[in-house]
Amino acid sequence: MQDFMLDARLANDSVSVAIIGLCDLRLMKDRRWPWLLLVPRRAGVSEVFDLTPLDQALLTFETNTVAAALKSTTGAVKINVGALGNIVRQLHVHVVARFEGDPNWPGPVWGHGKPEVYSDEDLNTFAAKVREALSL
């Protein structure tokens, strides 16, 4: 964990909400979708199978916990979870709340339109709600 460095693109596109164990839980800076990222704090990891079996279990547990918290916080119709990594190779898991009629519903969120930035107040408020739902 000492050599862990967050990919510059992830750092630019998101803000840390909390360290939840294995992962840095981050909020994407795009208010069109409530969109969280889990980034395992392990150096040189690009695939889930690169993690130790224990870290794989932790990642699954943290992903499910965050997905449930995001659904309860937002009332989303569907929670999308994915680890693509085609552009940013560092392992990270997307957890996105989706609603019928949201931008690009039912299509994917990646590469659709231009991001809409949160105000500082809205970003901080939403991050606090997520932390509360996670009991942090």
Rank of each mutant, 00 (worst) to 15 (best):
D3Y: 01
L6T: 08
L6N: 01
L6D: 00
D7T: 05
L10D: 02
L10P: 01
A11R: 05
A11L: 11
N12F: 09
N12D: 05
D13K: 09
S14N: 03
S14G: 07
S16Q: 11
S16C: 12
A18D: 05
I19D: 01
I19N: 01
I19F: 00
I20N: 02
G21E: 04
C23A: 11
C23M: 05
C23T: 09
C23F: 01
D24H: 03
D24A: 10
L25K: 03
L25C: 12
R26S: 10
R26P: 12
L27I: 14
L27N: 07
K29C: 14
R31L: 13
R32E: 03
W33A: 07
W33C: 10
P34D: 06
W35L: 08
L37I: 13
L38S: 03
P40S: 01
R41I: 10
R42N: 00
S46K: 04
S46N: 02
S46E: 05
D50C: 07
T52I: 12
P53N: 09
P53K: 08
Q56T: 08
A57Q: 09
A57V: 14
L58D: 03
L58F: 06
L58Y: 04
L59D: 00
L59E: 02
L59C: 07
E62V: 12
T63M: 10
N64I: 11
A67W: 01
A67C: 09
A67I: 12
A68I: 13
L70Q: 04
K71W: 01
S72D: 09
T73Y: 01
T74W: 08
T74E: 09
T74C: 10
T74Q: 08
A76N: 05
A76H: 02
A76Y: 02
V77F: 07
K78Q: 10
K78S: 05
N80G: 12
N80H: 12
N80C: 15
V81T: 11
V81L: 09
V81Q: 04
V81S: 01
G82P: 10
G82T: 08
G82K: 03
G82V: 14
N86L: 13
I87R: 04
V88Q: 00
L91R: 00
L91S: 03
V93H: 00
V93Q: 02
H94I: 15
V95R: 03
V95H: 04
V95N: 02
V96I: 15
V96F: 06
A97G: 12
R98Q: 14
R98I: 15
R98D: 10
R98N: 11
E100Q: 14
E100P: 10
G101E: 05
P103F: 02
P106E: 06
P108S: 11
V109F: 05
G111D: 08
G111A: 13
G111V: 15
P115Y: 01
E116W: 06
E116I: 15
V117D: 09
Y118A: 13
S119R: 07
D120T: 15
E121P: 04
E121F: 12
D122A: 15
L123M: 15
L123Y: 12
N124S: 13
T125S: 12
A128K: 13
A128Y: 05
A128L: 15
A128Q: 14
K129V: 15
V130A: 11
E132N: 11
E132Y: 03
A133W: 02
A133S: 09
L134W: 03
L134Y: 04
S135E: 04
L136F: 12
